[in-house]
Amino acid sequence: MSSSSPPTTTDEFIKGLWRENPVFVQVLGMCPTLAVTNSAVNAVAMGLATTFVLVMSNLAISAIRRFVPKQVRIVTYILLIATFVTVVDYAIAAISLPLHKALGAFISLIVVNCIILGRAEAFAGKNPILPSLADGLGMGIGFTGALLTLGVVREVLGMGTLFGVALFPAAFQPWVIMVLPAGGFFTLSAWMLVFNALRRRQRALSEPA
């Protein structure tokens, strides 16, 4: 948050993309980040599903924040989040069974994704509807983008395809480890290395010499 003026709705949206990116900065939601980024399609689907839940739960929680006694707020939040997750689960199964199968239990596990409860507790429970919507959307898109960066690297190296389209001639040797869980850890840490280096440089430039 900028120190001079109160943050605008646009600020709330933008912070999730980079400065407070849920994956690379807050290091939240590691379970889906590692587990379902073995292809770009899975990564995007998981990112969009999470974004939907995040936006809806932020909206709902912000709307009812004045009526929820603080003793039962976590229960209420989880109830709402679980409902939206169930809706997403049905929707994905209706859109594409193979995709539903590929994401597997990780759709249901969106309920326990720390990003969502984290935003509910840290932001939506204390802020009006519009900033909460912007916050949820920004975090969701930041999460989707982060998953996509992993998914692209893992799919291109691990299968030689991108969004299912072959990028290389048939002789391409897939790097099997990239689609295995170990590849998720390697790719995540490599991206984190890159992004931390970038941010350090950014900070060094912005500071007065």
């Binding site: 009812i64 209420t76 709402l80 409902t83 809706v87 049905y90 209706a94």
Partner: peptide, 25 residues
């Protein structure tokens, strides 16, 4: 009141989503 209210609304939402998607699935 909060919990019952939230429960009813959530239950309703889930039933609607299920009824809409079940035949497609």
């Amino acid at each position: 009141r909060t919990l019952v209210g939230a429960g009813v609304v959530c239950g309703f939402l889930i039933v609607v989503a299920y009824e809409l998607t079940a035949p497609i699935i």
